[in-house]
């Protein structure tokens, strides 16, 4: 099957593989510890660990966009900031 029309590149393939691995990890986590670990965090509404992953990924996307718009094309600092943000979300949200 020819997928050249999808215009794959190594960086984008790595990006989607990372997302897929995150989803698989969440599925394994859910299998090991079912229920989604719902709790009310600093945002004052209930979130499961799936919600927290979604908030982390969406927030990270906006951190990267803000960095591109304000800082420039070098995204390593944006990536580091996103990891810190995701840890914060999983810890406090």
């Amino acid at each position: 099957m020819n997928f050249s029309w999808m215009a794959w590149t190594l960086p984008t393939a790595l990006f989607f593989i990372t997302i897929a691995l995150l989803l698989v990890s969440m599925a394994v986590w859910e299998y090991v510890s079912p229920g989604g670990n719902p709790r009310v965090g600093i945002l004052r509404f209930e979130t499961t660990r799936g919600d927290r992953l979604f908030v982390s990924l969406l927030g990270s996307a906006f951190i990267h966009l803000a960095w591109l718009g304000l800082g420039g094309p070098n995204l390593w600092w944006a990536l580091a900031l996103s990891v810190v943000y995701a840890v914060g979300v999983f810890r406090y949200v």
């Binding site: 215009a7 590149t9 960086p11 984008t12």
Partner: peptide
């Protein structure tokens, strides 16, 4: 996924792509 792939490349058609980051 295809749109993400297009967003980091340039193309002038003919299924040829150039990396744009």
């Amino acid at each position: 996924m295809t749109v993400v792939n297009y967003s980091v490349q340039d193309t002038f058609g003919n299924n040829e792509f150039f990396w744009a980051g």
